[in-house]
Simulated scan of single mutants.
Amino acid sequence: MRAIALMVRALSGVNWLVGNVFSWLALGIVAVCFTVVVQRYVFSTTQVWMQDLYVWLNGAMFTAVAGYALLRDDHVRVDIFYRPASLQRKALIDLIGVFIFLIPFCWVVFIYGLPFVQRSWRIWEGSPNWGGMPGYWVLKTFILVFVAVVFIQGLAMVGRSILVLAGKQDLLPDYLRYGHGRE
C-alpha cells in the first residue's frame, strides 16, 4: 500500500508542478491581449502573430493544466450523488469513472490526435493566418500533453481510490485526501 501511496504522490506531484508552471501563462495572455488591444485602438495597427500568440498561449495553458484541475477536483461534475456520498462511495465512483470514462477518453484523444500532431510536425506547420506565428506544431503537441497529464492524474485517482477502499487513506498527505478542497 505504501508503494501505491508513493505512486499517487509522484503522479500528482507531476501535475502539481506542471499546473503551477503553466498557470503563469495567464499573465502572459493578459499582457499580450492588452498589447494587441492598445495596438489596434490606440495606434490603428495590429500584428497578426500577436493575436495568434495569445490564442496559442491560452490553448497551451488550458491543455497543460487539465491534469492539475483534475488533481484539485476543479472539473465540472454532476455531483447530485457524489457530494453527499461517503469516502468509500466517492472512491468507488472515481475508480469506476476512471476506467469507464477517463481512460477510454484519453485513448480516443490520443489515437485521433497523434496523426494530427505527427502531420503538423512533419510539415513544420505554421499559422493558418497570413503573417501569423510559425510553429503551429508546438501548439498541436499540447493535445498529447493534455492526454498525458489527464491520464497520469487518472492513474493517481485509481491509486487514491484503492487506498481509501483499503482503509489506508492516512498514507496520503492531506492535500491528496478526499474531503480536501471542494469536496
Rank of each mutant, 00 (worst) to 15 (best):
N58M: 12
V36M: 10
V98E: 11
L139V: 14
V147F: 00
S127H: 03
W124C: 00
F146S: 04
E125L: 09
L53K: 04
Y68N: 09
L25Q: 05
I100N: 01
W137C: 07
P115S: 06
F34K: 00
I162P: 07
P128S: 05
Y54V: 04
I123V: 15
T46C: 05
I152H: 05
N15Y: 01
R40D: 05
A10C: 06
G167Y: 01
R40V: 06
N20W: 15
Q169M: 11
S120I: 04
L95Y: 14
R160F: 09
V30H: 06
V21Q: 06
F142C: 01
I96Y: 03
I93A: 13
V55N: 05
K140P: 01
M7V: 07
M61K: 13
H180S: 14
L87K: 15
V117G: 07
G132Q: 03
Y112P: 00
A10K: 09
Y175C: 02
G13S: 09
M61P: 07
L176K: 03
D174H: 08
G19T: 02
I29F: 15
R182Q: 11
I100R: 04
A10R: 12
L114K: 11
V42P: 03
P104M: 11
L87T: 03
G28Q: 05
V109N: 01
M1G: 06
G97L: 06
T46P: 02
F105P: 00
H75F: 15
R89V: 05
R9E: 14
V42A: 15
R119G: 15
I80Q: 04
D74R: 09
Y175H: 12
M7L: 13
V138H: 05
W107I: 14
W124T: 02
G167I: 00
L53Y: 05
V78T: 02
R160Y: 11
G167H: 03
V150Y: 12
M133G: 03
Y82S: 06
V38F: 12
P104H: 13
V78W: 15
F43L: 10
R40L: 12
A156V: 08
M7G: 09
R2N: 13
Y41I: 13
V42F: 14
S127P: 04
V138I: 15
G181P: 06
W137T: 01
I4S: 09
V37K: 11
V158C: 11
V8M: 08
G179F: 00
P128C: 02
T45R: 12
T63W: 15
D94A: 04
Y178F: 14
I103G: 06
R40H: 10
S44V: 01
F105Q: 04
M50R: 10
L172I: 07
L171G: 08
R182C: 02
L27F: 10
D73E: 14
F146C: 04
L11D: 11
L53G: 02
F110Q: 06
V37Y: 07
Q153F: 08
S127L: 02
A148C: 12
D52T: 06
R160S: 04
V30Y: 07
A66E: 00
M7W: 03
Q88R: 13
V65I: 15
G131K: 05
W49S: 15
V109F: 03
R119Q: 11
V76P: 10
A148Y: 13
